[in-house]
Every structure is written in C-alpha cells, then in structure tokens.
Amino acid sequence: MRGVARRVALTLFVVWGAATAAFLALHLMPGDPVLTMLGDALPPADRVARIRAELGLDQPLAEQYLAYLGRLVRGDLGRSYQLEAPVASVLGEQVGATAALALSGFGLALVVSVPLALATAGRRPALRRFVTTLELVAISTPSFWIGVLLLSLLSFRLRWFPVAGGDGVPGLVLPAVTLAIGLTGVFSQVLRDGVERALREPFVLSARARGSSEAAVRRAHALRHAAIPLLTLSGWTIGTLLSGAVVVETVFTRQGLGRVLATAIAARDMPVVTGIVVLAAAVFAVLNLVVDLLYQVADPRLAGRASPRPEGVPR
C-alpha cells in the first residue's frame, strides 16, 4: 500500500513538474506574447500595455506562476491568442477526435499483430523472415510518409476514401491505419519474442503433455505470457499515439488535439501549446500509474519482487 501511495505522489509530482516546465516555456519564449496575440497588426504602445496588464504579464514572475497554478487547479488553462477562446474549451472540442483516432489505431495494431506473432513465433521460417522484414520496414518508415502515400494512392487515385475531414468511419480508416503501422511492427516483434520465450518454458511442455493442441497452447499459455512485455511498453505506446496524432491529423487535415498543437506551435500560441502539453503529460502520467497498478495486480511478483513463484504454475 505504501508503494501505491508513493506512486500516486510521484505522479502528482510529475504533473506539477510538467506544468512548471510549460509555464517556464511560456515565459522563456522570445518575442512579445502580446504582439504575437495581436497578430502582425502593429498596435499602439498604450494598447499593448493595457492588454499586458489585462493578462497579468506585468506582474512579478512568481506571482504569475502562483496565479497560473491556481488557475490550473481549477481547470482554467488560459486563453488562446489565435482562436480567441478559452484553451480548455478548445481542448474539450478536440479531444474526442484524437481519442477516436488513437484508440482505433491502437486497436488495429493489436488486432493485426496478435495473429502475426502467433503465426510466426518459432515456426514457418520463410513467413517469419518475411514478417520480420515487414516489421523492420514498418518501424523505420515515418508515419507522415505512410499517410501521404495512402492519401495519394487510395484517396486521390482510387478514390476509395475521403481525402479530408474526420467525418465518420470512412474518414477514420486511413488515419488509423497510418497510426497503426509503426505500432504493429513493434507489437508483433515484442509479442513474438514473448511467445517464443514462453514456448521454451516448462509449463508449455506440461500443457503439451496433457494433450493440448498446438494452437491452444499458443493462444492460452504463450500469448498470456507475451502480453506482459507488451504491457511494459504501454508508456511508449501512449507516447507514440499522442505524437503520432500530431503528424497524422496534419497529413489528413483531421480535427484533433494534434493538429491544434501543430498550428499553435507555428503561430506561437503558447497557451494552447502549454495546455495540450500539460494535458498530455497528465494523461500520460495517470495512465502509466494505472498500468503500473494493474501490472502489480496481474503479476504480484513485480510488486515487491520478493516472492518469486515457480514458472509453470497456472494462476
């Protein structure tokens, strides 16, 4: 239980740190934020001063920092310079589209990589070699190029999918596939490694001795063991999904947090940038915490690493 409390405290600390880093980023930024906010129209100095006062930018940094933390706790992420709207409401509008994209990309990667790994783990050398090569290429190909190629071929030439916007399932297919390809490469590698390792374990032998079929052994025993290394990848997976969203949403002109972030960076719309970054860091930290806790429940050996359990004993 103390372990859990410590993990929660660490998560809170990390979220606070991310928010502080974002605050510093906002204030380290070169260029006058008020001029950025007003666009390239050059306003008279008195107006700049008034807006600066309105935003509290003339206060000492420490006071601004406390005010910023206070607003953050209340869920107020500030106001977008470019979109003329509260950041929180902008993010609220966009988060659904990104979640749909990330979840479908993740689901797709899982659905494809599980059978791939099962079919090639420790057998079918020719197929296995082919699949590992594909995995290598999938991991090494930038997602924006995959997106551009899919768009060029399937939308512009063959006209199978819409080219713009995020309306409905047809509009989600290509972005989700783009996001899923790199993930699939990694998942399938990790799962196969895990399955191959598990297949060498004694409990598999005993299952085979009991007369279980090869397919049943793979699905029931090996895959379950292989899932644990996949779980350790959850942090990497979430990061890939979130940063993948930035690129994929830009390529496919989809609505979503990633595209808002990309536009905001180009426009130096720092409240939006920091808002999204803090939100992402918080989501990331909390999901990591949840996965960690689940992980300890799923495999108590990892909780304190104190009670090794003999392999092959079914739970």
Binding site: G96, A100, S104, G107, V111, D167, G168, V169
Partner: peptide, 21 residues
C-alpha cells in the same frame, strides 16, 4: 479483455459516425 477491447473499438467507430457533420 480482447473482446472488451473490440467492443470499445466498435463503440468509438459508432460514436465517430454520430458526429457526422
């Protein structure tokens, strides 16, 4: 868990349908 995941994905797909312009 896999089944639950599949359902979740399907739900996301359906809700994406719902936001059609």
């Amino acid at each position: 868990r896999m089944a639950a995941l599949a359902v979740a994905i399907a739900l996301v797909g359906v809700s994406a349908c719902g936001v059609r312009g």
